[in-house]
Amino acid sequence: MKRQVESAIEKFILLNGVACIFFVVLIFLFLAREGLALFKTFSPLDFLAGTRWYPISTPPKYGILPLFLGSLIVTLGATVISVPLGMACAIFIGEIAPRWLREILKAGVELLAAIPSIVIGFIGMMTLAPWVKYLFHLPTGLTALSGAITLAFMAVPTIVSIMEDAITAVPKSYRAGSLALGATHWQTIYRVVLPAASSGIVAAVMLGIGRVIGETMAVMMITGNAAVIPTTILEPVRTMTATIAAEMGETVQGSEHYFALFAIGLVLFVISFLINMTAGAFLHRERK
């Protein structure tokens, strides 16, 4: 009797563990079922390579290239800003700051991570956008650049916390060895510690990028929402995520437009899946 209860509990717990796999598969299947339905009536090539996103014109055009490039330009901008800042911050916290300062700085970074994205978007819209408009003499401050700056701050906590873990995981003996040979603290950091932590650093950057690509609300509020192919970073753009959030409310369930938005969701899912798998592989390698 007792043994049966034990084995029933064990099975139940196994079920909960496997549920995670089930959810990932379920998300993929749902997105695929609804997203691929678009291609019964619309050519996949026009979807992936079409340069116009006019979902409510006749005939409608569902080319995601402008949206993809919108996501790309904002992500690239945010990466260029957040990676050096995040890396500097991680090194400072992990290697240089005294213990009392370290705890304060870490709390500050956690505070940043805790602010909801809608609030960051709102503050960016109210304070950053007018500055961008004024500095570059633009008709509007809601541009890819404003989006990139805002998203950079949202990626920094991810980058800092993973990178700092990787840096502190480097064995003390490496540092001791380098210092004993007469290297300065800084030489030790960039010649010994950083190379030893490189897998974790790459993973941190990738997960930061993943965070930026998937960000929705802040980017929707601050990039100006113009679904055109961007030529400079000072123009309004629209990302893939913002398109789904902005248009899903107005579509009819089962319409071509509805399927097209799920198809964008599928593209996003695949991108984030690839990023996470790669980052996971790097983190796995680091642990070994």
Partner: peptide, 24 residues
């Protein structure tokens, strides 16, 4: 596999969760 699934769940964009939740 479970570990990989958890990492991936953590990385799925929030709006994609919205789509999935609506669909399911």
């Amino acid at each position: 596999m479970v570990e990989v699934a958890i990492v991936n769940l953590a990385g799925v964009p929030s709006v994609v969760y919205g789509l999935f939740g609506m669909g399911l």
